[in-house]
Amino acid sequence: MKNKKKVYTLGPKGSFHHLSCKEYLGGESEIEFCKSFGGIFEAVKAGNLGWIAIYNSNTGLIENHENEINRNYNQLDEMDYEVHLCIAGIKKTNLNDIDKIYSHEKAISQSKRFINEKLSGVELISCSSTSEAAQKLANENIEKAGAICHAETAKFYNLEILAQIPNKRKNETTFSFFA
């Protein structure tokens, strides 16, 4: 990026927003995190760049960001990012002992088949992002629990990967780069 403006996206570190933005930029020196989509839009209004998910091939529109961007901002580019999910837990957690799963509602929805086949009866706890779920498990050292997240996210938070969640069909999220 030649203009060296900061790029604001949804965090925390390890979110799909972060991982896809890092891939798009070829690094992460310009990436800043927001706690909400509104925070990203505010940062762009202040003259920065934004990176936001607009569509998922399995679950459809992600809120109504595409319309917001088209009405009020300039879309500069977009990228499709393949979503791969896993179940991660703190050290010495066994997949069969899990009684709670933390994640974003979209990731839980995309993992329903796996959960029903391998972990039926677990309590599903919604978080604001997959990375927040991983961060929560790690920071609070929650036993007998898993987080649905990306494998790289699990590494950020020093979690063990307990199982890969296979995609039964293509699972991609389209991200928009805008100013």
Rank of each mutant, 00 (worst) to 15 (best):
Y81M: 08
N70F: 13
L49S: 03
N74S: 13
G50R: 06
I54T: 14
V44E: 03
L61D: 12
Q75W: 11
N72P: 04
E78K: 12
G50A: 06
S57K: 06
E42K: 11
R71I: 10
G60P: 09
N67L: 15
N74W: 06
E78L: 12
N48I: 02
G50H: 04
S57A: 05
G60R: 07
I52F: 01
E78F: 13
T59V: 13
T59Q: 08
L49C: 06
D80W: 14
W51Q: 05
E42P: 01
N58F: 08
E78A: 08
K45H: 00
G60I: 07
N56Y: 03
D80L: 14
Q75K: 15
Y73A: 05
I69T: 08
D80H: 15
K45A: 02
V44T: 09
A46V: 01
D77A: 15
G47W: 00
A43T: 01
Y73E: 10
N58W: 09
A46F: 03
W51E: 05
N70W: 12
K45G: 00
N58T: 02
F41W: 05
R71H: 13
L76G: 06
W51N: 01
F41A: 00
G60F: 06
N58A: 09
A43D: 05
E66H: 10
S57L: 14
N67H: 08
N56E: 02
A43G: 00
N58Q: 12
A46E: 08
G60S: 10
N67V: 11
V44H: 00
N67W: 09
D77R: 13
D80E: 15
H65A: 04
V44R: 02
E78W: 14
D77W: 11
A43I: 01
I52K: 04
Y81V: 07
E66W: 10
I52V: 14
A53R: 07
E68W: 08
G50E: 08
R71C: 06
W51P: 04
T59N: 03
S57H: 05
G60T: 04
N64P: 03
I69W: 05
W51T: 04
N64M: 11
L49T: 02
L61Q: 08
I69L: 08
I62H: 11
N56W: 02
H65I: 00
A46Q: 03
E78Y: 15
N56R: 14
I69D: 02
V44W: 00
A53K: 00
A53Q: 07
E42D: 15
Q75N: 09
N67G: 12
I69S: 04
N70E: 01
N48L: 11
K45T: 00
R71E: 13
E66I: 11
Y55D: 05
W51I: 05
N72H: 12
N64Q: 12
R71K: 15
Y55W: 12
N70A: 09
E68D: 11
S57Y: 07
D77I: 13
A46H: 04
Y73R: 03
Q75I: 06
F41K: 00
N48E: 12
T59S: 06
E78T: 11
R71W: 07
E78M: 06
N70L: 15
I52M: 03
E63C: 03
L76Q: 11
Q75M: 14
I52H: 06
I69G: 03
Q75P: 03
Q75V: 15
